[in-house]
Simulated scan of single mutants.
Amino acid sequence: MPLLPLNDQNLPYPDTIHPIVVHFVIAMVFFAYFCDVAGYLSRNHRMFEVSWWNLVVASVAVFVAVIFGEFEAGLAQPYAAAQPALDWHTVNGWSISAILVAITAWRGIIRVRDPLKIPVFYLGAATFLMCLVCLQIYLGDLIDWVYGLHTVPVVEAAKQGLLK
């Protein structure tokens, strides 16, 4: 028996929090990447500073997103068809968290050593991170728009035993 009563979305609060926080993280990672590429191409070192602070905040916020994602996934009662997408979304989310923190640390070292430029190898790693984020967006869309976890009709169908 849950400590708090669950609503019609199978949540103890009015709506899912994970998507709100994760969209914030996605926007910050995309903007940091854009600023690094623009700064690299234009040689405008001020763009690197914007990128740095976006990465720092995203590195903290990503763990809030993952924590709420884990909590809400645990309450979702996923059915068999949705489980693989949810599993890959979970693994990829934890991977992105670790890679984002590593890239942020690397970016911090680059910033201390020479704040006026970034190496092309760093941009390659950031591009890899962007690819993982795009995959994560796809998996999140599957979970929400295709499998409908935490939507009222799917929660009701699961409670009635209609989903296996």
Rank of each mutant, 00 (worst) to 15 (best):
M1C: 15
P2T: 13
D8I: 14
P12N: 07
P12F: 01
P12R: 08
Y13P: 01
P14I: 11
H23Y: 06
A27P: 11
A27F: 15
V29R: 01
F30T: 02
A32K: 03
F34S: 10
D36E: 08
G39T: 05
Y40C: 02
L41A: 09
S42A: 05
N44T: 03
H45F: 11
M47H: 04
F48A: 02
F48W: 00
E49S: 07
E49H: 12
W53V: 00
L55C: 13
L55F: 08
V57N: 05
S59G: 15
V64M: 04
A65M: 08
A65H: 09
V66Y: 06
I67W: 14
I67M: 12
F68I: 06
G69R: 03
F71R: 14
F71E: 12
F71W: 15
L75T: 07
Y79T: 00
A80Q: 08
A81S: 12
A85K: 01
L86F: 04
W88F: 12
H89Y: 03
G93L: 09
L100C: 00
V101G: 01
A102Q: 06
T104H: 04
R107V: 01
I109W: 14
I110Y: 03
I110P: 01
P115C: 09
L116G: 09
I118C: 13
I118L: 13
V120W: 15
C131S: 09
L132R: 06
C134S: 11
Q136P: 04
Q136G: 00
L142E: 12
D144Y: 06
W145P: 00
G148F: 06
V152Y: 08
P153R: 15
V154A: 13
V154L: 09
V154E: 09
V155Y: 02
A157M: 10
A158E: 12
Q160R: 14
Q160P: 02
G161V: 10
